[in-house]
Write a protein that binds this DNA or RNA. Sequence first.
DNA 1: TTATTTTGTAGTCAGCAATAACAATTATGA
DNA 2: TCATAATTGTTATTGCTGACTACAAAATAA
Lengths: 181, 181
Amino acid sequence: MPPEADKKTATDDLDVRLVRTARDETGPADAPDSTSEQPRADVGPLSRMIGYALRRAQLAVFDEVIANFAEIDLRPAQFSVLVLLNHRPGLKQSDVAAALGIQRANFVVLFDGLERRGLARRTPAPNDRRSYALFLTDAGKAMLGRASELEAKHEARLDALLGEGGRERLLELLERVAKLR
Amino acid sequence: MPPEADKKTATDDLDVRLVRTARDETGPADAPDSTSEQPRADVGPLSRMIGYALRRAQLAVFDEVIANFAEIDLRPAQFSVLVLLNHRPGLKQSDVAAALGIQRANFVVLFDGLERRGLARRTPAPNDRRSYALFLTDAGKAMLGRASELEAKHEARLDALLGEGGRERLLELLERVAKLR
DNA sequence: TTATTTTGTAGTCAGCAATAACAATTATGA
DNA sequence: TCATAATTGTTATTGCTGACTACAAAATAA
């Protein structure tokens, strides 16, 4: 089984692909796997490295956010655009991209998705025919409202984990680290 | 000069507003940040969200790590494998993948790269013909040595940013967050 | 033995970031 | 004023990474 292997690709027709919606499980009876708590494998020196710890934490948080937003089909990056545009309407693409740390080239596709779904729109900028002023549509604002509710619950859960003053301390430390850039 | 100029729904004139960045914010209000590196654009509510802050910090750290490791052509994920294998030689693929939070399917390609470069090797597992026991080669240990030096400098730089006790507090908080998983 | 689980693989797909190259538009400066 | 440089939005490409499906071989449970 390891190496070797025969070609045998072919067969690839059905493509069911279920969307994995967090929550719920094998409902009735049983549930053999007791409340699992990960053993947290020993990774040695890695556990002392900031980068490694950051990555693990970030993936954990994003996993949950993505699962939470699955029902409204919104990605974290899209959410951040909605929040920013609601906070500062009329920014142009370069501004939003820069504020979020996204390459302006990549932002185009990201925003196309929002516009295609009618959540945001491009408007000709008043003084510069090269650029657009970006705004949320009413649908976008409604979407942001729902997303914010989900987000609030998520943040509350994090606060429970972080404990008293944990959020403040964490945000402060993360901001320092981000200064590296 | 945007592409088509089709949009332009007749009745659309309102909304000229000048957009002023509401500067509520916590902390020392304005202060035309003197010697700060970046203007740190105002992203509003985003700056209070753990996920956003985590992502920014993680990207900043990885950017630097990737740049530091560029000269030895090593990716963070590869580095983590070297560290783990040096710490616990003989693990099988499933173990390493699980410990690092990588899908075992994806780990195959990752390890192939290390093996191809002669940094690590697969050895038939003693009691299980299905699996391999993984080890670093001498070249792999040498590579890990150089990488560790670069990593140490990086961590030192982070410590300078984090200040006294900063690392401990940050690691502790990140570990709690990672518990989400 | 038979059924189930584990392990390693291959392949596909999606998200996201970095880059290069362009055309239209502004800004600059001599 | 006009040639040149810088901006802005765009397209396309590449690479890393993570998630999933499907498989075959081997180990384990029933």
